[in-house]
Design a protein around this nucleic acid. Structure first.
Lengths: 185, 185
DNA sequence: ATAAGTCGTTCGCTGTACCGAACGGATGTA
DNA sequence: TACATCCGTTCGGTACAGCGAACGACTTAT
């Protein structure tokens, strides 16, 4: 979500899109949401500046999560082959991260394919507060987590932890790789 | 996000929490957001019903994604060992899904570890509109995607596609496994 | 001490988001 | 044809969100 420009147009579009997807009339949605249909009419036309209660009621009436009304539309299918895609390398450790998915423009969650070799540990500083990291092991063996309480993971293991405290990644075996979902909230 | 009860308390708490995290004064935040500090004062005290423009400006001023102001707080560290965790089995294909992470209470994204054997294909019906699926290959070989345009994936490949159209998973090799991030928006 | 700078709260005032009613247009049905 | 119902839009009235000013409480400097 772009934090720089007003979301009113997005909301207007979303309201109409979601309503038509549910095949509901404007009047019906207004009734379900307990708001005047005139209000909804104006909102859908892009005029107005709804307050939270109104928008919330509409999200419920349309049976969609709230943020669906305040975010841009979906993405297109997309494949990144092994070895392709934008990579992030680290000198600190033998380490390659491939950015697989990022939700533009104001990132909510990124997905990386990470490959680490057992040459020293990778220390990651704390990220933005509220970040949560999810690890799904693909191959090798990994020591990961907050500095004071790391865990060791094997293939198919999963771990998640808050990313806003100092933490690190250390490969314990060659050709260690894992999927990393980094969630910013 | 719980779509049943009003978010105003959540917002009030979030506003104060994020402001204190950034170590900013109420006056400062109000100034940055271009709103009256009296307004912010009332919002933080839980009184009021802000409109979208106001909330948006505050999100920008606090340097957090908008939805951070409308959602419940973070999660705790957590490990699920290979073989552990709640699983979903399918009779339709030789198929095991392990639910690794779900963001309570109104799900935004789930993370699964999926294991499939090459015995017929798994047809997944369309999910809720707006769902997006992300696949990171762990082992084996997988045919996946919309019915009319599937792709074949090998280890370390990645693919994403809209989950709200009919699509399927089919293992092309034994012991096929992958991480699946299912995103509801 | 007192003046000047914060801080966050409380107070009328004003603009406006929301409401309800009335409207014109489609469609259905006696 | 007239008479229902729907639909979505447009129009005044009103309650209230947001504003600026003033407030008391606290720090820091003079």
């Amino acid at each position: 979500m772009d934090p720089t420009k007003p979301p009113i147009d997005l909301i207007a579009a979303a309201l109409r899109r979601e309503r038509e997807r549910e095949k509901l009339s404007l009047s019906e949605v207004a009734k379900r949401a307990g708001i005047a249909k005139s209000t909804l009419s104006q909102l859908e036309s892009g005029a107005g500046n709804p307050n939270i209660e109104t928008l919330w009621a509409l999200a419920v009436a349309l049976n969609v999560p709230f943020s669906r009304l305040v975010e841009p539309p979906p993405t297109a299918p997309r494949v990144i082959r092994a070895g392709e895609g934008p990579t992030v390398k680290s000198g600190q450790a033998d380490f390659i991260g491939t950015l697989l998915a990022t939700s533009p423009p104001g990132v909510r969650r990124d997905i990386y394919l990470m490959r680490v070799e057992p040459v020293g540990a990778r220390k990651a500083d704390a990220h933005l507060a509220g970040t949560v990291e999810h690890v799904v092991m693909i191959s090798g063996r990994l020591r990961v987590g907050p500095e004071d309480s790391p865990v060791d993971l094997d293939v198919h293991d999963y771990a998640s932890f808050a990313g806003d405290v100092a933490h690190g990644y250390e490969a314990l075996a060659p050709h260690t790789s894992f999927a990393l979902v980094m969630e910013h909230r």
